[in-house]
């Protein structure tokens, strides 16, 4: 017996690779949900470790709200070109055009909730039986209880009371036709772990994660990037600020933080000292304390 165990980043990495390989081994038609955010970028890096020099045993799937930061889309396309892997894009605009989703009205309208419709449609259309996502348990209380292999019924619903027990590292991916499994390989990582890993592995990120000058407006106490999708009016005063984004979601619901963190080391220092958690900068969670749980039950990531 030795007392020396793996360093925490090595252990988290090894666990995530193990989970990705379980997905490859257990499912017929898996997919990796790619948002362009740092968590799914980390997943891509882990997939390279798990399967290279072979091809990924799954395509990347991006649910595009049409309201993304242009920097994210550029990053996505460059990355896919470098990897030589398949990318499938599900467009929220298509769901709206087909009448399956209705665009929200009013000043704070967002397509964030509509993503679920497009996601479920894309899953059904391609017959995916497993969708790998970058959610982490430290993000939110409801996520803290979700399994690494999380079974969804044919409506994409998560039932917290009917979760399968997950023992040791044995993941049960057996499902009935029509059901699918959401798999979260970095469940046990924290925001800081992800950043430390990105630094260690020298992974490139979309530029919006780093401090830059941008036109911003203030909505509901949060700093938002000024963009045409935000339904701006004369009450919205545009200010030029040094900002960065801690998550990369839809432009309508992703708030900026004022920051001078131009380098990854600056970001890690900033987060270490930060007094606001990552999802605190997401307006979609602010609605009620049980907001995430309700969204997950409805089929959200």
């Amino acid at each position: 017996m030795s007392k020396q165990s793996l360093d925490y980043l090595d252990e988290l990495e090894a666990e995530a690779i193990y989970i990705l390989r379980e997905v490859a081994g257990q499912f017929e038609k898996p997919a990796l949900l790619f948002s362009g955010g740092k968590d799914s970028i980390t997943l891509v890096r882990l997939a390279e470790k798990a399967f290279r020099p072979g091809k990924f045993p799954f395509p990347l799937v991006h649910i595009d709200t049409g309201h993304n930061f242009p920097e994210t889309i550029q990053y996505r396309d460059d990355m896919v070109a470098r990897l030589g892997e398949k990318l499938i894009i599900g467009h929220v605009q298509d769901s709206i055009d087909q009448g399956k989703a209705i665009e929200q009205k009013g000043k704070n309208a967002s397509r964030n909730a509509l993503q679920t419709v497009t996601l479920l449609d894309t899953i059904a259309q391609h017959g995916f039986d497993a969708c790998i996502g970058g959610a982490r348990r430290d993000e939110e209380k409801a996520r803290a209880k979700e399994r690494i292999f999380s079974v969804r019924d044919e409506f994409g619903q998560w039932d917290p009371k009917r979760q399968r027990p997950e023992l040791w590292n044995l993941y049960n991916g057996k499902i009935h036709k029509g059901e699918n499994v959401r798999v979260f390989p970095i469940s046990n990582w924290t925001e800081l772990d992800v950043w430390n890993y990105i630094r260690r592995e020298n992974i490139a990120l979309p530029s919006i994660y780093f401090a830059h000058e941008r036109d911003c407006i203030t909505r509901n106490g949060q700093l938002m990037a000024a963009a045409e999708f935000l339904n701006m009016d004369e009450e919205d005063v545009i200010n030029r600020k040094n900002v960065r984004f801690r998550t990369v979601g839809d432009m309508t619901c992703t708030a900026a933080v004022e920051s001078d963190a131009f380098l990854i080391d600056d970001i890690i220092n900033e987060i270490s000292a930060s007094k606001i958690s990552e999802r605190g900068a997401r307006m979609d969670d602010k609605v009620s304390e049980a907001a995430m749980e309700d969204r997950k039950k409805g089929g959200y990531f």
Binding site: A144, S187, L192
Partner: peptide, 14 residues
Amino acid sequence: IDVAYKYFQTDKRK
């Protein structure tokens, strides 16, 4: 009613 996972770290351990 169910298992919840919580994360924290100090200077010495995660």
